[in-house]
Each structure stands twice: as structure tokens, then as C-alpha cells.
Design a protein around this nucleic acid. Structure first.
Length: 396
RNA sequence: GUGGCCUUAGCUCAACCGGCAGAGCAUCGGAUUGUGGCUCCGAAGGUUACGGGUUCAAGCCCCGUAGGCCACC
């Protein structure tokens, strides 16, 4: 461990910690990276294939994205990390000059299905593109990410779906994740790229404790909390965060909960003390016709919107709401038009990033607990808007 | 005008020798959390063109009517 204790971090993170013993652990921060500053808590849109699906970089800036996530696994297969490196690196390749974080491919190992074998050396699995047998090791995941050249790389880990795994399996995957974390640190060379380690441990309190201490004990630039945003309940997730975050309370590094994206989930995790998030959720549901608003969720494929001249969300500054009606968007979805994807994605990302901006503002002014209570009581999250309306009517 | 074939869910079509009328698409609703890019799940939808007949039982067999297609005149 002493071998890498000399690492100089290419990022700086300043945070104003909340008063100890207060009502919330929510905090704001300022993350300086080689490609710019990121205000936290932050939501990172996911751009798997070096594109946030349906959007271009102008759209991304317009929706308020300050940092995005791209995917090591996918880009290594296509177009290939060496090709991207030869073309000047990921930032230049995709024409996005702001910060990027690359995921390690660990998640794909569990999400891409059955044909995989995990041993101490790494993961053997089949390409989702052509079925070719491939191998990912911690060292290879780092090499790929160094070639891509994102501002932040993360370790190859072994996430475990809590409900499909025994305690012994979670313990084994967690211990292996720690060993791989050390190998990733040893392998990582680029001085202009940060490296985050990943905590595992499933839903087991003691394993989460062990994992937090193991990862926080290594000289990473940030701490990821993995293995959540899956099939656990919000209560179970919060219980894990209430184990992990207090152990990091004096740790100056950013905390990144991988995979979380629904507004109420984000709110609760910020409250628990998390700084960074990513998720495919707002973009994916947008492409399937679900539009988020303060009143709840609108399914634009529903017949009720076919004659609705109002914008999806009154007063929303996004490309969709400032120009087009619900009726028009409903038509685009039914006609399977590509523009529906772009407009809906712009809206949901605007909504999500604006939501995070409101959270940051509330934290700064000390009103976050009130914001949290009012949002939670309104139960407006991403459930159906009409359902929420009916609930209100019934309660009167 | 004559002959042949046809008419089943909104659409395109299945349904063995007469034995509980189905599918795809469309419609309606739901899902989606470190992305395998038009996905997944569910629901509704029928006087089988119409009127008779035979039969324990008819989408299916018989008669008639209406409509459609093809060929011939």
C-alpha cells in the first residue's frame, strides 16, 4: 500500500461539511478536474457509447450537464480505445470538452448475462456485439481507461445483485473487489486522471463496514459506493448509506453512489451524504415516453395527451417545453419519430439537473431539510401525475 | 348476364374429419436506476357479413340475401 501513497491527485475537492449532529448529512462541494469544475451534489448523464443517446454536446450544455459518464466496456469493443486514443482521446473524439468519468465495465460483467466466468485474474465473458470470448482484468480496465483519457477513472469491481446472492457470495465478491482495487492502483499511471475505488458489501452491514474501511484506506481520489440502485428497497439502500457514509465523515474525498437516478432516490441519498450520481433512468424512460415534472410523471403515449396543447411542464426552459405541445410530442412518439427521443431526453435531463441545482441551493441556504420534507410529503417523484392528483383529491 | 372463389377482433389473417374462436400489428395501461438503442409485462377487443335450415353440437355442411375479387360473355 505504501507503494502508491505518493500519488498526487489531479482533482481537488472542497466541501462545506454540514454541522455535526445536524438533521442531515447533505453537503455541497466543488470538484476541480482537468476539464473544469463540477458543483456537487451532481448528477452525471450516461453516455455509454461516447454519446448521451439522442443528444449532442450543445444539447448537453443546454440541459446543464457539467460532467458525463462514458463506458469502458462498450468503447473498448467499439470503436476500440486505441482508436479513440489515436484520434486524440475521448474528449476530442466526442467533442465534449467538460469533465468525463468512465465506468470500469464491472457492472456490465453482471448485467450482460450468463456467459461469464470470474476468477482471481479477472472476468471472462462474451461480447454482446459478436459473441467473441473476451477477458477483462483490473489492469486491462485501467489501461483502457487511460487510453480513453477521462478525467476520472474507476476500478474494476465485482458488483453482486443482493437478492440473487448468498452472504458467502457477497463476501467473496467484496474481498475480490478489494484485491482488484489494489491492482488497479498499482496499474494506474496517468497523472492527469483521477482514480476512484469502489465499495461493495451488498446489504450486509458488517461487509459494508469492512469494504468501506478497505477502500477508504487506499489512496484513491474518490470513493464509489457500488452494488446499489438495483433490486434493494429504498429503506435497505438508506440503511447501507447510513453505515458507509458515517465511516467517511472525516474523509475529504467525494462520495459517488453508482447508478441512482430517480428524483426521490437522489434526494434521499444526498441527505445521506452522497456527492455524485449517475443513471440511465431519466434518459431511458424519456425514450419510452415518460416525462418527468414536479406534479409527477406523464406517459406521453397515453391517449389523453393527443389533444393537449400545453407544454409538458409549464415554465420549463428546455428545448421541448419552450416550443412544443404535449400533443405534438405524443404524435412524435406514436409515429416513432427520432425527434421524440431528443426532445424527451432534453426534458428529463433538464428536470433532473435542475432538481440537483435546487438541492444544492437549498443546502447552501440551510433549507435542505425543509425541501426534503415537502418533496417527500408531496410524493410527486416519478409516479404517475394523474395518480398523484387522484391521491390528493381522495385525501380531501 | 354466366361461372368460380371469398366475407372471422380496428387492420392483415389462422382455426385438422363439425367439438371451448386465436395470432401479429394497432388500441388501452404499466414497467425501466454504474444503458445489449424502437425493449419488457399486462389488459381490452367477437351475434364468425345478414336471414333461415340440418345436427347433441355449425366459423366449418345445406338454402337464400347482400357485398367483394377473378374469369368468361
Amino acid at each position: 500500500m505504501s507503494g502508491h501513497s505518493q500519488r498526487r491527485s489531479p482533482i481537488r475537492f472542497e466541501t462545506a461539511g454540514p454541522p455535526a449532529g445536524g438533521e442531515t448529512r447533505a453537503r455541497v462541494g466543488r470538484l476541480e478536474t482537468p476539464h473544469g469544475v463540477v458543483e456537487t451534489p451532481v448528477f452525471m448523464p450516461v453516455g455509454t457509447n461516447a454519446t448521451v443517446k439522442a443528444l449532442d454536446p450543445d444539447d448537453l450544455r443546454e440541459v446543464g450537464a457539467t460532467i458525463i459518464l462514458a463506458n469502458t466496456y462498450h468503447l473498448s469493443l467499439r470503436p476500440g480505445h486505441d482508436r479513440i486514443a489515436g484520434l486524440g482521446g475521448l474528449h476530442r473524439f466526442m467533442a465534449w470538452d467538460r469533465p468525463i468519468l468512465t465506468d470500469s465495465g464491472g457492472f456490465q460483467v453482471v448485467s450482460l448475462g450468463d456467459l461469464r466466468r470470474i476468477d482471481e485474474e479477472g472476468v471472462t465473458f462474451r461480447s454482446h456485439l459478436d459473441g467473441a470470448l473476451l477477458h477483462f482484468s483490473p489492469e486491462y480496465a485501467i489501461a483502457v481507461q487511460e487510453a480513453l483519457g477521462a478525467d476520472i477513472a474507476v476500478c474494476l469491481d465485482q458488483p453482486v445483485p443482493p437478492h440473487a446472492s448468498s452472504r458467502a457470495e457477497v463476501a467473496e465478491a467484496t474481498a475480490r473487489t478489494h484485491r482488484w482495487a489494489e491492482r488497479c492502483l498499482q496499474a494506474h499511471q496517468r497523472e492527469d486522471q483521477a482514480l476512484f475505488g469502489i465499495i461493495q458489501g451488498g446489504l450486509e452491514e458488517d461487509l459494508r463496514t469492512v469494504s468501506t474501511e478497505a477502500i477508504a484506506g487506499l489512496p484513491f481520489d474518490g470513493i464509489c459506493i457500488g452494488g446499489l440502485a438495483g433490486d434493494e428497497t429504498p429503506v435497505q439502500r438508506r440503511a447501507v448509506l447510513d453505515v458507509v457514509v458515517p465511516l467517511l465523515v472525516d474523509d475529504p474525498r467525494p462520495r459517488y453512489l453508482m447508478g441512482l437516478g430517480s428524483p426521490l432516490d437522489l434526494l434521499d441519498a444526498v441527505d445521506a451524504g452522497v456527492d455524485m450520481f449517475d443513471s440511465v433512468l431519466p434518459a431511458r424512460v424519456a425514450r419510452n415516453g415518460s416525462l418527468w415534472s414536479p406534479e409527477g410523471r406523464l406517459n406521453l403515449r397515453n391517449a389523453r395527451y393527443l389533444d393537449d396543447p400545453r407544454p409538458v411542464q409549464e415554465g420549463c426552459p428546455c428545448r421541448l417545453c419552450r416550443t412544443f405541445s404535449r400533443a405534438y410530442l405524443a404524435h412524435l412518439f406514436r409515429a416513432n419519430e427520432l425527434l421524440a427521443h431528443r426532445l424527451a431526453t432534453c426534458h428529463n435531463l433538464t428536470f433532473t439537473l435542475d432538481f440537483m441545482a435546487r438541492i444544492r441551493s437549498a443546502i447552501r441556504t440551510g433549507t435542505f431539510p425543509g425541501l426534503k420534507r415537502s418533496l417527500r410529503d408531496s410524493q410527486a417523484d416519478t409516479k404517475g401525475a394523474e395518480t398523484a392528483d387522484e391521491g390528493r383529491v381522495k385525501s380531501e
